[in-house]
């Protein structure tokens, strides 16, 4: 417990440092927000084009699809806010030997490298996702209970951790195979699967996306809470997946550190 509090304090401290840092580059905020709005606008047009041809795709109507889009947006943005930069930077840190100082500190090294930088623009950007969901719920006329909100947030968190685990594992493959920038592309491509309803995929692929590469657990599950249709069994399953992925990450990290070469400048 004492340790837990200490780690929370460290997280806040690093977030504070990043805020001080980011204040120096304020204009980034606006441009980033602008980009995200354009991106979302494009997604809307896509959805609009698709639903001008039909009423329902994989059993999701247009506003349910918007909820899925919004959920996906929140998860991706929050993942980017806390972990994305850290994971990409990790590749160079491993290659160029910049992990040295992390390793000599009396603190969990994975924690340090994973949370060092916070990208504040992404936090503000995630708000757009909440707005989309709110609007879609209003259009659908569904009322949401506080329990559902809590479950939704829990599964969003779970989704972020799954994305983190996958990206982190890809980054630290650098320990074994040198430069791994193309692996990030793999990450990007895999996250494609979080965008659409799982029902559109064939059975075999759907099973893969629920287990080995649980992209449907990431976004479909939380969206289902709001759309209706998430059973409690699935809830436990989602959390089990999240926890086991985190455990794999920790194990892989400790294996990787044994191969760390600490290149000198």
């Amino acid at each position: 417990m004492k340790d837990f509090l200490r780690y929370c304090r460290m997280t806040l401290l690093m977030m504070k440092n990043c805020l001080i840092r980011e204040m120096q580059f304020r204009s980034n905020f606006i441009i980033r927000l602008f980009t995200e709005v354009i991106w979302l606008g494009m997604q809307f047009i896509y959805v609009e084009v698709l639903y001008s041809l039909t009423q329902s795709i994989g059993g999701w109507n247009v506003w349910e699809m918007v909820i899925l889009l919004g959920t996906n947006h929140i998860i991706n943005q929050l993942f980017e806010a806390f972990f994305f930069d850290n994971c990409t930077k990790l590749v160079d840190q491993i290659r160029l030997g910049d992990l040295d100082f992390v390793l000599v500190k009396p603190i969990n090294s994975q924690f340090m490298v994973s949370l060092r930088y916070t990208d504040y623009a992404s936090i503000t950007n995630s708000m757009a996702g909440f707005a989309m969901i709110g609007f879609a719920l209003h259009k659908l006329g569904t009322a949401i209970t506080p329990v559902e909100v809590l479950l939704f947030l829990l599964l969003v968190l779970n989704g972020i951790f799954i994305l983190y685990s996958m990206m982190f594992c890809l980054s630290i493959l650098t320990f074994w195979i040198g430069r791994a920038s193309n692996l990030f592309e793999l990450y990007y491509q895999l996250t494609q699967f979080t965008r659409y309803p799982g029902e559109i995929y064939r059975f075999g692929l759907r099973m893969v996306l629920l287990t080995a590469i649980p992209m449907l657990v990431v976004s479909n599950f939380p969206a289902k809470v709001l759309v209706g249709g998430l059973l409690s069994g699935r809830l436990f399953y989602a959390c089990a997946i999240g926890v086991s992925f985190l455990l794999i990450t920790t194990w892989l990290w400790s294996m990787g550190l044994k191969r760390y070469r600490s290149a000198s400048s």
Partner: peptide
């Protein structure tokens, strides 16, 4: 123990030194 390397730095580049020092204080309790 502590390690100091002349060719690598542990201080945050875009922050005043005191912020990095304070972070270290927290890390080392």
């Amino acid at each position: 123990f502590a390690l100091v390397m002349g060719q690598k730095n542990q201080l945050w580049w875009d922050l005043p030194a005191q912020e990095s020092l304070y972070l270290n204080k927290e890390i080392y309790n």
